[in-house]
Design a protein around this nucleic acid. Structure first.
Length: 243
DNA sequence: TCACGCGGGAAATCGC
DNA sequence: AGCGATTTCCCGCGTG
């Protein structure tokens, strides 16, 4: 519903600009969780989330519009591309209308494997590259819990939504709460049984390391990250298997 | 100027 | 002992 409204009326036009964004934000807000009981800062967070969603849609839409070019672009070795480039350097032709079924269906909601299967591959600005090492690990027995797995658990837990929540669940984009980010870190530290208290700063350092292995990428937005397609798939599989 | 978030190098730690 | 996955510390940069 959200995306169909967003994209209706001639399709989503990238040239909407800030003013148009504002008006769309007004339409979107009622559809987002917690908006009814939100505090002012929650509302600001929600607005920020929505900006991320819009950016995501823009990027997704642009990549859809270029087809093969995007495929070539995204199969280049990750080592040669900066994360920034995936978000900002795609100069694409004029956008075409984006069909409702092309849009991730569960914005502001938890995602499911079914939704992913239904809507096909995730946007290509996340590389599917994963090291053999990690694939082998993932295929093997689940040993000690890893950070991205822990984060996925948090994201799937509605009671943790005040700390970390999906921005675009189907795309694996999530964001930490600016006020409660250290709570997630503290829980992670507890889970690992660290001697010293874990902080967001240290946890984010670990998250940045995932960029090298291609499991999680930093999104060009404060406190926002994105699971890679493969990682998201495997997490969802294991999550549903564990239910 | 300051706080905050980010990026990343480097060494340490821990478990397998 | 070697290795992988963090953890910890630190420094510098950009932004509001």
């Amino acid at each position: 519903m959200l995306h169909t409204e967003l994209l209706s009326g001639g399709g989503y036009n990238r040239s909407l600009g800030a003013r148009a964004r504002q008006s769309h934000l007004g339409e979107i807000l009622p559809y987002c969780e917690d908006s009814s009981s939100a505090t002012q800062s929650d509302l600001m967070d929600t607005q920020s989330d929505l900006e991320v969603i819009l950016e995501f849609l823009e990027e997704y839409y642009r990549l859809n519009a270029v087809g093969n070019e995007a495929a070539v672009y995204c199969t280049a070795p990750m080592e040669n591309r900066l994360c920034d480039q995936r978000w900002s350097s795609c100069e694409q032709p004029a956008p075409q209308p984006l069909l409702a079924h092309d849009v991730p269906p569960t914005l502001c909601q938890n995602t499911t494997t079914a939704t992913l299967a239904e809507h096909g591959p995730l946007p290509n600005y996340i590389s599917t590259r994963q090291t053999k090492r990690h694939k082998a690990r993932a295929a093997g027995s689940g040993k000690k819990v890893r950070l991205f797995h822990f984060l996925f658990e948090m994201l799937e837990d509605p009671s943790m939504a005040h700390c970390v929540s999906w921005v675009a669940a189907a795309a694996g984009v999530f964001r930490f709460s600016s006020t409660n980010k250290d709570q997630v870190a503290a829980l992670w530290g507890q889970r690992k049984g660290n001697k010293r208290p874990m902080t967001y700063q240290k946890m984010s350092r670990a998250l940045r390391n995932y960029g090298r292995s291609g499991e999680i990428f930093k999104v060009k937005k404060k406190l926002t990250y994105q699971f890679s397609q493969d990682t998201l798939m495997s997490l969802q599989k294991s999550h549903e298997g564990g239910l």
